[in-house]
Design a protein around this nucleic acid. Sequence first.
RNA 1: GGGGGUGUAGCUCAGUGGUAGAGCAUCUGCCUUUUAAGCAGAGGGUCGAAGGUUCGAUCCCUUCCACCCUCACCA
Length: 481
Amino acid sequence: MYVQARRTKLEKIREMGVNPFPYRFEKDTEARYVFANFDQLDNTDRELSLAGRVMTMRVMGKASFCHIQDESAQIQLYVRKDDVGEDQYKLFKLLDIGDIIGVTGPAFRTKKGEISIKAHKIMLLSKALRPLPEKWHGLKDVETRFRQRYLDLIANPEVRELFVKRSRLINAMRSFLDGEGFVEMETPVLQPLYGGASARPFVTHHNALDVDLFLRIADELYLKRLIIGGYERVYEVCKDFRNEGIDRYHNPEFTMIEFYMAFADYHDIMELVKRMLLDIATRVFATTEFEFAGNKFDLNAEWEILPILESIKQYAGIDAANLDDQALAAECERLGIEIEKTRGRPKILDDIFTEKVQPNLIQPTFITDHPLEMSPLAKVHRENPKLTERFELYIAGSEVCNAFSELNDPDDQRERFRMQQKFSKLGDEEAQQLDEDFLKAMEYGMPPTGGLGIGVDRLFMILTGKTNIREVILFPQLKPE
RNA sequence: GGGGGUGUAGCUCAGUGGUAGAGCAUCUGCCUUUUAAGCAGAGGGUCGAAGGUUCGAUCCCUUCCACCCUCACCA
């Protein structure tokens, strides 16, 4: 019925000889500009052209007010019959909230003190056939907000600003890396083998080749091929796809940024990522202090470096290095940590870590030197053959990134893949695949390299205090209606 | 997958075993500086879906669907 009323108006507008969907409008001013420069604009004859969506209307017999919203702000229009003429005023009365219009006229301040535009000309730019969510209470229903994100963006300016921030954040990362001499590369989304992470993939099919292909779960192995190819600093901002559960920390497609730096080790990467996060936080948010889920942290604080076994000793009181598997399992039971007996020692350690250590890591903390079995792409620790040179950065109890001194010994890499194959046979659906093509590449010689991946959505959540990933992804995955 | 919650007008929300309510939006009339979106009046509902209990269900019961929270799984 709402739609019908609007269609009737649409016909009336057409009968007046007005095209309700014209082609362009010469917009020269943003609403925000008028507010920012009102002192120079007030009481001048300067004609400004603005355009935006009608958000409010107060229509009276011969003079009316409305607000239009453009990308920058909302501004009031004063439309007087004597100023715009009989026909335009008639047209104005046929407008609805939601219509997109252009206006030309000078800026002034009303009796009540609101900065406004006195319309000399009004132009309908697009007729809206459906009513907008109400303006006073706004749009709150989260399902509508996610399913019809455009309504969320129209109704909730802070959401519009949030996604601009997201864009700026990614831009800042690119600009930081570019400044460090990195080059952004593009690697395949469709891969004959999936690799570079432990996760279940999406499978698709290429008809002409008649082969199954996987949507990438990471771009790691391709970026390393580029390091082998002679680029010394590469990165990629990429969408990865993981065929796993959806919850407030996981969306099936998500954004990663990975970078690889030849001749560097994981210590260099720690230093680099710290500089990078400080740089982008300062540039995008103009602060280093944040709060996420009630936890305050400061990127300017000291970033502790804590080997994972040390962290377990410190927070769980378990000296895992000196315990055999049985004793370890007994300790878990004592602490009330449920473990699956079938899982190997690394998984048990991971469970302890997740349960007892991770929630305590509020200030930026590098957790380092993970056991070998957990890290099939990381280089053996130079001082302990059971460990790898790896770190994960934790902030506010969340993992933000994962990095290694990259494994570049092809024979060792082959062994690691074989170990993964064993896990796979034991039923680990996330075990990594043996990639002969990648091994071949490495056999041509890969320089010592440090590499890192940052989950961009997670990082952005932490920096904006959003505790649901759907708040930071424009079109999050939902079940079909 | 388990537990808890939500689903009522375009939007935000009340409510009841006896044919459904408010504010805003919509429609009509009035109005040349209004504004929580002017004043007055009017219209508007498959009460998430299907079944059951009942003389009668939006309300009680069952199943299903979607979303939120939480646990599990999972980076």
